[in-house]
Design a protein around this nucleic acid. Sequence first.
DNA 1: CCGGCGATGACACCAGGTGTCTTCGCTCAA
DNA 2: TTGAGCGAAGACACCTGGTGTCATCGCCGG
Lengths: 173, 173
Amino acid sequence: MELFTERGYDDVTVAEIAERAGLQKRSFFRHYTDKREVLFTGSAEFQRTVVDTVRAAPTSMTPVDAVMAALAQGGTGLTDWGEPVHQRQRIVSSAQELRERELIKMDALTAAVDDALRHRGVQDITATRLAQVGVAAFTTAFQQWSEAAEPQDFAAIIDDALTRLRTALCEPQ
Amino acid sequence: MELFTERGYDDVTVAEIAERAGLQKRSFFRHYTDKREVLFTGSAEFQRTVVDTVRAAPTSMTPVDAVMAALAQGGTGLTDWGEPVHQRQRIVSSAQELRERELIKMDALTAAVDDALRHRGVQDITATRLAQVGVAAFTTAFQQWSEAAEPQDFAAIIDDALTRLRTALCEPQ
DNA sequence: CCGGCGATGACACCAGGTGTCTTCGCTCAA
DNA sequence: TTGAGCGAAGACACCTGGTGTCATCGCCGG
């Protein structure tokens, strides 16, 4: 993160990252499959958190609500980290290869949420759609959060995103 | 495509692709920025088609309907190619780096549709949501089409996808 | 017939990524 | 205490994607 922020993602070499960590280039690739992957360590844990929350939601909850609550909670956990998350976000959006990686992580998250919904007994096709919509709302909410000047409440942003989506889809002007 | 199908994406080298085309490795990179990009030549044109269709839709049409009609039309244009598209799809889904590239192309498409909707006077945030939902429906519809044993009508699939989404979102059980 | 221009050849070079063997440090049992 | 065993790291060669650079060739208009 230090190196990337100082000189930009492309101008930092893996050998330099390894050196700063007191290791050899080869050792870097024993910990991360990719140069990109070093910026996505947390994503597996984040995904697990969201999935667990969806599964643990009371059966009285609507599937939509369960998904949105899980994503809101997970997102709040992220945004609580504050500045480091902002920093990471700036780096990721600066390079296309990183945005690609982020997109595929979100795709994996979508698949995982989809799966969690099916475990709740939601019909297959419905589950897929809900997962897609939920993750899309999460993504834009997160982007909005990271672009905002003032610190904002993540849960409020993502709720707003969903409401607007519902309106647009179901009550077209 | 021949080489990739014969031996798999990873085991084909750029030098070999160039050789089969009677060119030098360096010349390949004068035509494509990437090894991946050679599988995404059509995507710019596809995006242009969809955007133009959204813009050209009569003002009497609902934004949702305009988007879905444009995507259905564009998708039908794709699926009309038949087997080559299936072949390409098999290759793309076989390698993570290719799926990543595909995702970012879809992201670009989403942004373009978003923009086109705003030009129609749709409110900004609504436009973004509609574009996301539309492209998501397109993606799953296309996937369903490419996995189907029998040739199917693309427009019907994508319509079905949207209907189910509306139901899931607006009339939760 | 010539000057210029775009496309390609030729070639060196860098960085990401991998295979392989060795070395080091720790743990645990005899 | 010692030594076998094992995982993590070092060392190093090697491949491939990707770029910079310069020479070359064919074409086209004047």
